[in-house]
Design a protein around this nucleic acid. Sequence first.
DNA 1: GCAGCAAATTGTACGATGTACAACGACACT
DNA 2: AGTGTCGTTGTACATCGTACAATTTGCTGC
Lengths: 242, 242
Amino acid sequence: MPSPPRPPRATAARKSAASKPALSRERVIEAALAEIDERGVAAFNLRNLAERLAVYPTAVYWHVPNKTAILAEVVAVVFRDVAPQQRKNDDWRSYLRRLFQRYRESARRHPNVAPLVAAHLVGNLRIDFDFVEGVLAALSAAGLAGARLVAGYNAVVAALIGFVIQEFSPLPEADTEQWQSAVQQRLLGVDPAAHPVLAANLPLLANKAFILRWQNGSEAPLDDSYASFVEQVLAGLESLRE
Amino acid sequence: MPSPPRPPRATAARKSAASKPALSRERVIEAALAEIDERGVAAFNLRNLAERLAVYPTAVYWHVPNKTAILAEVVAVVFRDVAPQQRKNDDWRSYLRRLFQRYRESARRHPNVAPLVAAHLVGNLRIDFDFVEGVLAALSAAGLAGARLVAGYNAVVAALIGFVIQEFSPLPEADTEQWQSAVQQRLLGVDPAAHPVLAANLPLLANKAFILRWQNGSEAPLDDSYASFVEQVLAGLESLRE
DNA sequence: GCAGCAAATTGTACGATGTACAACGACACT
DNA sequence: AGTGTCGTTGTACATCGTACAATTTGCTGC
């Protein structure tokens, strides 16, 4: 006796079928983001999404071609408007600082989306010309041109995602409890003979450095490191100016 | 009439059951890597893996707890031994240069693994103390200590993955044909009024800059940009030395 | 040699998930 | 009223991860 396919939430009085559509591409994406925020990407699936929207699973497909398209859109939404406004008398450095800040804040607002960024980013920031132009303009104002401009641009984009992805990507899920102490244990077991610098700096590094952490960026943000990172990137670009 | 569950490849004379195990954790991981190299992560599944190993799907579970563990191991294998050897009279710069070089080469050998790196890297490079110590020792030799050491370390790790992940992550799958020309089309349609710097530098950037590419790093490597990137990172670290 | 045990694999089965596809209702315009 | 299109319901299925029981095989102590 297979239970009926779990009718949509009977509560909310939905608009009747065709008058004003209950769904829309935007509502779907929005709900998907909410779903991911609550449950994480791994647990995200179309049936839960549909339930949240109070429709049957396949209704979603009217507005969206498939699941990966939804994920791509979600990423796009999260990072929409990362590109800062140009300000008059804007220094290229301060523009880039703001860009880095905004990017990280977008990620921090939706940490569960972070792992998607890597997978989708190539085609993502979906050819956001404003974003690209913003970076290029800043670098151009810094005096970069030609091959150096390209190299600077790629460096900025690489840096932008490299830090943030790692900071906010979820740690080995679920059994956090046990895993956390396992990591701490391993750290305590460092052999000062084999790994002297690490051993000597353990207290400084523990939970504050990639790979040596047991908490996520949303629980234990790496504010200082990020601030320093941004300055390092700027210094790197500076060195490109010849 | 459900077809029988597709018996394992009848060919290869497997070792009999318990004498010398046909499988082993290593063989599983190795086969998984091969599978991913050929088909990509998205298409990777346990049944194909089992078929390649000429066993029934669930036999794999004797050696490995679950799929994600396999993926984690695969990443670990690919980046095993990234940490370069220390050389006598080793300059910290040349050590880091080698590290960056080796990391990228590992990724280039298995580009399909790239998207996994982000997802798993946090717990990945599975507390490879040799890797960590290598970076720390180099930075320490550069004169960094305390908070600056931490910041430098995090910057290196962030930079390491930021560029490479993006360079090699697969572009919007499948319909490459159509997608590629779509991207090119959009690029040609840039409005010089709205995005002047981009428009002016289009030929330089097209297919050679993140977001503005239509080919993967394995097809169109960003060698020059990466070389520059590494030098920028070093300059950034330099700036940390006060 | 043989009983029994453990290791490793075969086979079966099930629930979750993405998605195709065929109704079907509701409004919009004739 | 008739008809077509939009948006949704409802059904159905193939794929996949994995639990679990049955079975085979070699190894060990007797």
